[in-house]
């Protein structure tokens, strides 16, 4: 396994960072308040918060901004808006977010491809970083706890060094200038690497088993838990922008004052907003918070298994920590549904 693995001493990280910044702007988690982190542009490696777990917004914002111009028009023509795209480096992306990016890639690549997302995605380098979970992390349960794809380089913290995995051709190119700083990984490094990942695997404590999600959701679709939660839901839509796999948007026109020119823009939207599934004649397919909440849970837990064959929750815990009503606690909610479901099945069996 150690073919493309090198050892980078933590003491040499500053030079590694310098070399990355020569390729383009570097974005990394920085501490923005007592408890929160955010991906921001960093000029020096000292700004990077290596301890950060979940940033407020996931890194999707660098490929899919909260709003962007799609086209411009005037009374005679329509023109695609093609912004200059600078090369960007995202440093410190954890496994859950790498998996999240992979899901966004799938959606935006499916035909017809979304140029606005993909052009930025192709013009970037992703450097992953290992992490130790806190109580809200459940990537292990969702099967997204190890870096599998979506990165060019990945750093695992093995004590005084990082084990640097080079995954793609872009990654090879990026490390080329710092080759003198690196040494090939040896057996001792390999054992330190394995020790890290096995310690980390044991650090997940919630014991969440997302078994039979599809059938549990189906059988518990009318469970009263949903109504109890919906009574508290503010329909604020906080849970969607923070989710690394929420991709929904609206397309809107911004007309200039003279009315003959303007632009078409795309803006993040949320399935938790009341008008999201409304059609003409005031007909709403998801009129109540309960309809929208169930829709969201279903979508995250197994909504994409038909077209794409994957779940869209990667277990980052962002929704749980950012829901003001405390109802986006996926782990507890699913565990409660599983428990009632099991109780019922047992009861039926007796």
């Amino acid at each position: 396994m150690m073919d493309h693995c090198f050892v980078l001493a933590k003491d040499s990280f500053a030079e590694f960072f310098e070399s990355l910044s020569k390729l383009g702007r570097v974005y990394a988690p920085v501490k923005v308040s007592d408890q929160s982190y955010s991906f921001r542009q960093v000029e020096s490696h000292e700004q990077i918060a290596f301890e950060a777990l979940r940033t407020i917004l996931p890194p999707k914002k660098y490929f899919y901004p909260t709003q962007e111009t799609i086209l411009r028009y005037n009374d005679v023509q329509i023109e695609e808006h093609k912004p200059e795209i600078d090369f960007q480096i995202l440093f410190g992306v954890h496994p859950c977010d790498l998996a999240g990016l992979g899901i966004m890639d799938t959606i935006f690549t499916a035909g017809p491809a979304d140029s606005h997302y993909l052009n930025r995605r192709q013009s970037s380098l992703i450097v992953g970083l290992s992490c130790m979970p806190d109580k809200h992390c459940f990537c292990q349960s969702m099967g997204t706890d190890c870096p599998e794809s979506g990165y060019d380089l990945f750093l695992t913290d093995i004590g005084d060094d990082y084990l640097l995995e080079v995954r793609t051709a872009a990654g090879v190119k990026a490390v080329d200038p710092i080759m003198p700083l690196l040494r090939a990984a040896g057996q001792d490094d390999e054992s330190r690497y394995k020790a890290f990942w096995s310690n980390r695997a044991q650090a997940f404590t919630n014991g969440f088993k997302p078994d039979n999600l599809r059938s549990v959701m189906a059988m518990e679709w009318d469970n009263k838990i949903w109504d109890e939660m919906a009574d508290r839901c503010l329909s604020c839509g906080n849970c969607t922008p923070v989710c690394p796999t929420c991709y929904c948007f609206d397309l809107v026109d911004i007309a200039s004052l003279n009315g003959t020119s303007g632009e078409r823009r795309r803006e993040w939207d949320s399935c938790q907003f009341v008008g999201f599934a409304q059609v003409a004649a005031d007909y709403n397919f998801r009129p109540g918070p309960v309809d929208r909440l169930k829709f969201w849970y279903r979508h995250k837990l197994h909504g994409f298994d038909d077209p794409f064959g994957f779940q869209t929750c990667v277990g980052c815990g962002r929704c749980t920590v950012s829901c003001p009503a405390g109802i986006d606690d996926i782990v507890s909610v699913v565990q409660a549904l599983q428990a009632t479901n099991q109780a019922k099945t047992k009861h039926d069996a007796n």
């Binding site: 959606i107 609206d250 994409f304 298994d305 038909d306």
Partner: peptide, 20 residues
């Protein structure tokens, strides 16, 4: 009929069950 913003399986508005 569903609300449809993009028409090409991206905006999420028309999602029912597992499909756009």
């Amino acid at each position: 009929e569903r609300q449809m913003k993009c028409g090409i399986g991206k905006c999420g508005h028309c999602f029912i069950g597992g499909r756009f």
